[in-house]
C-alpha cells in the first residue's frame, strides 16, 4: 500500500477571480461541505458486514437500503450534479469543458454501434451538452453539419481511421484523442490558465497510465505512439523506453509517483496502484480551487470530485458485499484530500 508522500506543487495558475460566479461558487461551497469525508470512506472500508455499511451511509445523501437502490441513487446523483453545474455555468466554453467528456463518450458508443456487425443495446449518458437524440441522428444519418464545431471533424477522423484499420478500438482511440484536443482548444479559447494546466496534467498522467497498460497488454511501440495523447508536458519520445528506464528518466513534479508504484507493478503486474496515485495527484491539483473566492474553476473541480465520490462509494459497497479483500479495494479508492 503506497500513499502519496509529498504533496502537489503549488498551483502555478494564478486564479483570476470572476465575480459573475459569486452565486455559483457559494452554492458549490455548500455542496462541497456535503461530500463524504475521508473518515467516512475509511469507516466504510472497515465495515464488518452489509448492514453496517448501510448504517454508516444512513442519514447522508446515500442513505438507502440496498445495493440496487444505491446504484440507482448514484446514477441520479451523477445526472443531478451535471445538470446543476450546467445551470450554474454562465458561459458556453465552461459548459463545454464540464460536459464534453460525456458528449464524446456518446459519439463513441454510437459510432461503434454503427459499424458493429451485431445489434447492441446502447448505453448512453443523457447528461452531455448535446442532446442524445441529435447525436444519434447525426451519427446514424451521417449528417454532421448540425453538430458544433470540432465534433463533426472528430467523427469524420474516427470514421476514416476505422475504415483503415477495421478495428472498433480505433474509433475509441481517435475520439479519446479528439476529446483531449478539443478540451485543449476550448480551454485555450476560454483563457483560464487552470483548465489548460489541468489538461496538461491530465494528458501527462493519462499517458503514463497508458504506457503501463500498453506494456501489460504486450503491444508494440507503434501502437503506443498511436494511443498517446497530445498536449502533455512530457515528450512522447520519453515513452518509447523500457519501463524502468522510463521511470528513472522522468524528472517532473509527479515522477515520484511512477517510481513509488514501480515495485507494485513489478510484483503484482498491475498498474492499478499508479492509477490511484495519479488520480490523487490530479485531485490535489483540483483542490487548489479552494483558494478561489469566485470562479468557474470551482464548478469544474467539484464535478470531478463528486464523480470520484460516486465511483468510490460504488466500488467500496459492491466490493465489500462481494467479498473483495479490503486492501484490494483500498488500492482503488483515490482519496481527494
Amino acid at each position: 500500500m503506497i500513499r502519496l508522500k509529498s504533496t502537489i506543487r503549488n498551483p502555478q495558475s494564478t486564479f483570476v477571480e470572476d465575480k459573475r460566479y459569486a452565486y455559483a461558487t457559494a452554492y458549490i461551497r455548500v455542496l462541497e461541505n456535503k461530500l463524504l469525508s475521508d473518515q467516512i470512506m475509511s469507516q466504510l472500508l472497515e465495515a464488518e458486514d452489509e448492514e453496517s455499511l448501510f448504517r454508516i451511509l444512513q442519514g447522508g445523501e446515500y442513505g438507502v437500503g440496498s445495493v440496487e437502490a444505491l446504484e440507482e441513487k448514484c446514477r441520479e446523483e451523477l445526472i443531478g450534479v451535471i445538470s446543476l453545474v450546467k445551470q450554474l455555468s454562465l458561459e458556453m466554453p465552461l459548459t463545454q469543458l464540464l460536459t464534453m467528456k460525456y458528449d464524446f463518450y456518446n459519439f463513441k458508443v454510437l459510432l461503434k454501434a454503427k459499424y458493429f456487425s451485431k445489434d447492441v443495446e446502447l448505453h448512453l449518458f443523457d447528461c452531455g451538452n448535446l442532446d442524445v437524440k441529435e447525436i444519434k441522428y447525426a451519427v446514424t444519418e451521417g449528417k454532421m453539419r448540425a453538430l458544433p464545431e470540432g465534433f463533426a471533424d472528430a467523427v469524420r477522423k474516427a470514421e476514416t481511421e476505422f475504415e483503415k484499420t477495421e478495428e472498433l478500438s480505433a474509433i475509441d482511440v481517435v475520439l479519446d484523442r479528439e476529446f483531449v484536443n478539443t478540451f485543449y482548444r476550448v480551454s485555450s479559447e476560454y483563457g483560464k490558465r487552470f483548465f489548460i494546466e489541468y489538461l496538461e496534467l491530465f494528458a501527462d498522467l493519462s499517458n503514463i497510465k497508458i504506457f503501463f497498460r500498453v506494456h501489460n497488454q504486450g503491444k508494440d511501440r507503434n501502437f503506443l505512439e498511436r494511443v498517446l495523447f497530445d498536449h502533455g508536458s512530457l515528450d512522447k519520445k520519453a515513452f518509447f523506453k523500457p519501463v524502468e528506464e522510463f521511470a528513472s528518466g522522468l524528472h517532473t513534479d509527479f515522477s515520484h509517483l511512477v517510481r513509488e508504484s514501480l515495485d507494485y507493478w513489478k510484483t503484482d503486474g498491475t498498474s492499478a496502484g499508479f492509477e490511484r496515485l495519479a488520480d490523487e495527484y490530479l485531485f490535489q491539483f483540483l483542490k487548489s480551487t479552494k483558494h478561489i473566492v469566485f470562479g468557474p474553476e470551482v464548478l469544474f473541480a467539484y464535478l470531478m470530485i463528486k464523480e470520484n465520490e460516486l465511483k468510490s462509494i460504488r466500488t467500496i459497497v459492491s466490493g465489500k458485499i462481494n467479498g473483495v479483500p479490503v486492501d484490494m479495494i483500498r488500492e482503488r479508492i483515490p482519496l481527494p484530500s
Binding site: A22, A26, R29, F294
Partner: peptide
C-alpha cells in the same frame, strides 16, 4: 455578497 449568500 448577496449573490454568494443566495448561492448558499
Amino acid at each position: 455578497a448577496g449573490q454568494a449568500s443566495a448561492g448558499v
